[in-house]
């Protein structure tokens, strides 16, 4: 059943490399939050109510509502251009993304670690690699934040795939940490925009020997 969510998650990764508009990135991040909830729900059905509520909070509330709303606000504040520039043409990005997904699935079928759900490991791995790739090809720091969010989603998938259940307290601490981290990164994006009048990464190159 969770394959439906996993495959859809893979499709969102392709769409990330296809789309070039900031708004669509934010919608996709929101969609990924819902998909993560689906995957977590199917795989962690046997857990207690408290933990279920926590996962609901983590995925639906934070990942697909709070963070996208925050990103929307940032987008308005920074008057981001609709289209983001990239180093690699979208055409090649799609090819690379497809091979990343295909490769991580094929690789995972060879991974033989007990207690590891390789199907979730595969998509988590693809998400991690794609997040890093996304950061590398994009020229502005808002997109870098999006890439960081994709990586965080990948890590969430890893933790589901390993089936490790942390105490809710620890989970809460991690969630809080990540959330504050994203907020601070976002605030810094705003500061960069205010001081440099641009969020192009090329602006941030004064520090060198």
């Amino acid at each position: 059943m969770d394959y439906v969510f996993i495959i859809t998650f893979a499709v969102t990764l392709v769409l990330f490399s296809l789309f070039e508009r900031v708004k669509k990135f934010i919608y996709l991040i929101s969609l990924q939050g819902v998909l993560l909830f689906g995957i977590a729900l199917v795989n962690l059905l046997h857990i207690y109510t408290l933990e279920l509520v926590f996962i609901l909070l983590e995925t639906i509330v934070v990942k697909s509502v709070v963070i996208p709303l925050f990103l929307m606000k940032m987008m308005k504040h920074n008057q981001l251009k609709r289209v983001h520039e990239v180093h690699v043409p979208v055409f090649y990005s799609i090819v690379i993304t497809t091979f990343l997904i295909l490769g991580s699935f094929l690789l995972s079928s060879y991974v033989n670690i007990p207690k590891l759900h390789t199907r979730i490991f595969a998509i988590g791995f693809a998400s991690l690699l794609f997040g890093i790739y996304f950061i590398i090809i994009h020229k502005n720091i808002f997109s870098h934040l999006i890439g960081y969010l994709i990586i965080e989603n990948g890590i969430f998938l890893f933790s589901v795939g390993i089936g490790s259940q942390m105490p809710v307290l620890v989970g809460l601490a991690i969630l809080l940490d990540i959330l504050i981290g994203i907020l601070i990164i976002g605030i810094f994006v705003n500061k960069v925009k205010d001081r440099f009048n641009s969020i192009d990464i090329a602006m941030l190159s004064q520090l060198k020997d």
Binding site: I135, I141, I184, I185, K191, V192, L204, S205, Q206, L207
Partner: peptide, 15 residues
Amino acid sequence: IAIEAAWKYLFITSI
């Protein structure tokens, strides 16, 4: 320059 250093530190270390 402080923004730049803080951004780089925050972002690279977070990842």
